[in-house]
Amino acid sequence: MTEKPGRQRPGGRTARNRENVLRATADLLLSEGYEQLTIARVAAAAEVAETTVYRRWPSKVHLVADALSELARVENPIPDTGTLEGDLRALLNQVITLVERPEVQRVILTVVSLAAGDDEVVRAKDAFWEARFAGATDIVNRAVARGELPPDTDPYELIEDLAAPAYFRVLITGRPLDSRLVDRSVALALNRQGIRDAAAGSDRRASPSVDG
C-alpha cells in the first residue's frame, strides 16, 4: 500500500488519498474527539498506509488543522451575493451554522487549548487560520473592485471584526449565536475605518432623492 514518490499524477491517486485521509480525520475527530484520534486509526479508515499520512502530515496536530480547514472550505464556501454587506452576512451565518454543531465546538475548544509553547502546534494553528482567511479575502477583493472598499483595506482585519464576536461566544461566554449577534457583527465589520459610512454614501449617491 506504500506509494512511490513522484509517480502519482496531480488529481490522481495522491489527490484521492488526501481526500480520503482528510475525510477520515474529520469523521473520527467529530465523532470521537481529538484525544482518541491517532494516525494509525486515520490510515486504517482511509485505507492507506501510515507512511502515506506521515509523508504529508508530520504530526496529528498538522493533520487535524488541515482536516478542519477542509471541513470549513467544503461547508463554508465563500459567498458571492453581489454586495459587501450581503457577503459578510452570508459568510457569518455559514460560520455560525458550522460552529453551532456540538461536535465542532468540542473540536475547536480542544484545538485552541493545545500547548501554545509548542512550535509545531503554533505552526499548525497558523496554517489553519491562514487557510480560513485566504478564502475570505476574495470577498474584500470583489468589494474593492466594486468600489465598496478602499484598495488598502486589510482583509484580515475586516474578517476578524466580523467573526471575532461569534468565536468569543463559542470559546468564552457560551452565549447564543443569534440573529442579533449577526447584525451587530456585520455592523462592526462595516464600521471598521468608516466602511459603513462609505457604503451608505455610495447608496445615497446611487438612489434618487426623496425630495425629488
Rank of each mutant, 00 (worst) to 15 (best):
A127Q: 13
A164M: 10
A206P: 09
K60L: 14
D161T: 13
A200L: 15
V170P: 03
V144M: 08
A187P: 04
T25I: 13
L63K: 12
D66P: 02
R9C: 01
V99F: 00
P176I: 00
A15M: 06
R146T: 05
P5R: 11
D183Q: 11
E70G: 01
A43R: 04
I108D: 03
A43F: 04
A164S: 11
T52M: 06
T173A: 05
I39N: 07
D211A: 15
I39Q: 06
P58C: 08
P58V: 09
L92F: 04
V182R: 00
R41F: 06
R169G: 00
T51N: 14
L37E: 01
V21E: 07
A49R: 05
Y167F: 12
Q105P: 09
S59F: 07
I108G: 02
E3D: 05
A199Y: 12
G12A: 04
D27R: 13
A115W: 06
A116F: 14
G6K: 02
G135V: 00
V48Y: 03
V144K: 14
A67K: 07
G82S: 02
P151A: 15
S113K: 10
T110N: 15
S69H: 02
E100Q: 12
R9Y: 04
T81L: 00
S185E: 03
A124G: 12
P151G: 12
V64T: 10
G86K: 04
A49N: 12
R55M: 05
Q8S: 15
K60E: 10
I96L: 04
I159A: 08
I96F: 01
L29S: 05
E120L: 08
Q105S: 13
R13T: 14
R101A: 11
D203G: 11
A67G: 07
Q8H: 13
V64R: 11
N141V: 14
E19P: 03
Q193W: 05
A44S: 11
T52Y: 05
P102D: 11
P77G: 08
E148Y: 04
T81R: 01
T173M: 06
A199D: 08
A124P: 10
E70K: 05
T97N: 10
V140D: 01
T52P: 07
A116K: 14
D119A: 14
E3C: 03
A206D: 13
N17H: 10
D80R: 06
Y54I: 13
L63Q: 09
D161G: 12
I108H: 04
S202F: 10
V53M: 03
